[in-house]
Design a protein around this nucleic acid. Structure first.
Length: 513
RNA sequence: GCGGGAGUAGCUCAGUGGUAGAGCGCGACCUUGCCAAGGUCGAAGUCGCGGGUUCAAAUCCCGUCUCCCGCUCCA
């Protein structure tokens, strides 16, 4: 199975889909560049998404927001919490909290863990026994018999003493806005002795205070811009709820671990849509978008069965979400996320209303009522989509004892739509072939003229990069004005008129999806 | 974060202290003319990077970077 990933990574580099970032300098961890074919594939995926989510609907409009936003946005959204404070995870209930705000407990003190209900308490009992080898005694929703450790505090949610180490979580990339370096202020403070005697958490807090006036952050998701600009879009476009705002673009996250080639990287591209609807209609819209998005991924796939929907368990839901489905794909290493469709309720608009002091509620003129819309968010990974469709398309088969590698990409996703090949380099065949390829260029169809090496090699080269059709100009073309068109997947050929070649390919291209 | 593996030509890899190699790919020419054909010639390597041991290091030692795998973590 891992062979498959190795082959794909190798093909990506060899044929110009994906390169390691800054490779001549030794490479940069978890950053990748898209080559000439990769950028085509990625754009084709993103354009198909935009076409289906925005252009083919009248209830969704798009925006393209700046990557750097007002820092208060991230305070409101909750992303900034914990940036300066050590965070701790409870290993039992998964709550993440600030160590300095947690309830205190002396080492050795008896501790009782308390949960929302008996069911959750039962699960916690098993976790503690399995992971920490301690058998507690359950009494209803309480667990008794635990002892506080030397940390001096407990989980504020369940009271557990089983906690992760204190860590600074810098989820977001911090930068500074302004031509003067924020470090100047720090240097000055040191010279003036303002940091004298400070240590640990206090020093950290003082430094943050000095950096804060110029601190800005690279967005960790595109979503917040849609909430922040919700009212502008509503007013300027005369939108009526229900409606959606879509956006594609880069996001940045300092992931704890990066893995699986471009699957999880610190810089990645998202395709997100926030759909604003009336509370009470949100469950129906959730079902609608869940099904729409699933259908969308499957329609470009060779193996639709490798996509599935997985509802989040109640205990893995984000704090703001009422419900969430993941679109998952069966990667070579197992099922993994591709898109999340979440019911974010009125959490984000409510938070931004509170932090900005602006009214973000909606007045329905026909129903004559006022409410803060609920939001259904289908948030897809564009870079993950690229990886998924490469894996889905990669195929090897035996042809006359040789292995044929072919990328069975959906024609609308294929980087190059058509290869134009003179059978040989003689007898005027290249000249005629040039005329054919020019006709495609004039129509804006990404075509490729190729006369290098034997015809068999050229077919295989284009199979490997997913070119759906090869047009071959042979001596007969000079006589009767016909050429052959070869199908990538079946390798079958038929003769068509040169004059109708562009039309033929356009028809094939628009046939599906 | 922990553990394991890897890094030598564009790709896949061989090379265990003594002259840097193969296959494929790439370029030119010839041949050929519909599914990775053949021939001739050619270009291409800071052996990941830095330091050390040695008369001598791709090879041994230390550090470091990057990638892969497993666990952990994260959403």
């Amino acid at each position: 199975m891992q062979d498959l990933m190795k082959k794909i990574v190798s093909l990506c580099k060899r044929r110009g889909f994906v390169y390691q970032s800054s490779e001549i300098y030794g490479g940069l961890k978890s950053a990748y560049d898209f080559g000439p074919l990769g950028v085509e594939l990625k754009r084709n995926i993103m354009n198909a998404w935009w076409r289906d989510m925005v252009h083919r609907r009248e209830d969704v409009v798009g925006i393209d927001a700046s990557i750097i936003m007002h820092p208060r946005v991230w305070e409101a959204s909750g992303h900034l919490a914990g940036f300066a404070d050590p965070l701790v995870d409870c290993l039992v209930c998964k709550e993440r909290f600030r160590a300095d705000k947690a309830p205190t407990a002396d080492e050795g003190a008896a501790v009782t863990l308390t949960f929302a209900d008996k069911g959750v308490a039962k699960r916690a009992l098993e976790i503690v026994e399995k992971q920490f080898g301690v058998v507690l005694e359950r009494d209803g929703k309480d667990l008794k018999g635990a002892v506080a450790g030397d940390r001096g505090y407990l989980c504020p949610n369940c009271g557990s003493p089983w906690l992760s180490a204190e860590r600074q979580f810098n989820l977001m990339f911090r930068s500074s806005l302004g031509a003067t370096d924020a470090m100047d202020g720090v240097a000055e403070a040191i010279e003036q002795g303002a940091l004298e005697g400070l240590a640990g958490r206090d020093l950290r807090a003082k430094l943050d205070e000095l950096m804060k006036p110029s601190a800005v952050y690279l967005r960790p998701e595109t979503a917040q811009a849609m909430f922040v600009q919700y009212d502008n879009v509503l007013q300027s476009m005369s939108m009526k709820v229900p409606f959606g705002i879509a956006q594609m673009g880069k996001s940045f996250r300092n992931e704890i671990t990066v893995e699986h080639f471009i699957f999880r990287s610190v810089e990645f591209e998202q395709m997100e849509m926030e759909f604003f609807c009336e509370p009470g209609t949100d469950d129906a819209w959730m079902d609608y978008w869940r099904d729409e998005r699933m259908k969308w991924w499957k329609k470009f796939a060779n193996e639709p069965d490798k996509f599935r929907l997985r509802p989040h368990e109640p205990d893995e839901l984000a704090h703001y979400a009422k419900g969430c489905y993941d679109v998952e794909y069966l990667y070579p290493w197992g099922w993994g996320e591709l898109e999340g469709i979440a019911n974010r309720t009125d959490y984000d608009l409510g938070k931004h209303a509170k932090y900005s002091g602006q009214k973000l509620d909606y007045f329905d003129p026909t129903e004559r009522k006022r409410y803060v819309p609920y939001v259904i968010e289908p948030a897809a990974g564009a870079t993950r989509g690229l990886l998924v469709y490469l894996i889905d398309a990669y195929h090897e088969e035996e042809v006359d004892g040789e292995t044929r590698a072919v990328l069975r990409l959906h024609p609308q996703l294929a980087p190059i739509k058509v290869a134009v090949l003179p059978l040989t380099k003689k007898d005027g065949l290249p000249e005629l072939a040039r005329k054919v390829v020019d006709a495609f260029f004039r129509r804006g169809i990404n075509a490729k003229y190729d006369e290098q090496h034997s015809i068999g090699k050229r077919y295989r080269r284009h199979d490997e990069i997913g070119t759906p059709w090869c047009l071959t100009i042979d001596p007969q073309s000079l006589e009767d004005g016909t050429i052959t068109i070869r199908d990538r997947d079946t390798m079958e050929q038929r003769r068509i008129a040169i004059d109708g070649a562009v039309r033929e390919v356009e028809d094939l291209l628009h046939q599906e999806a």
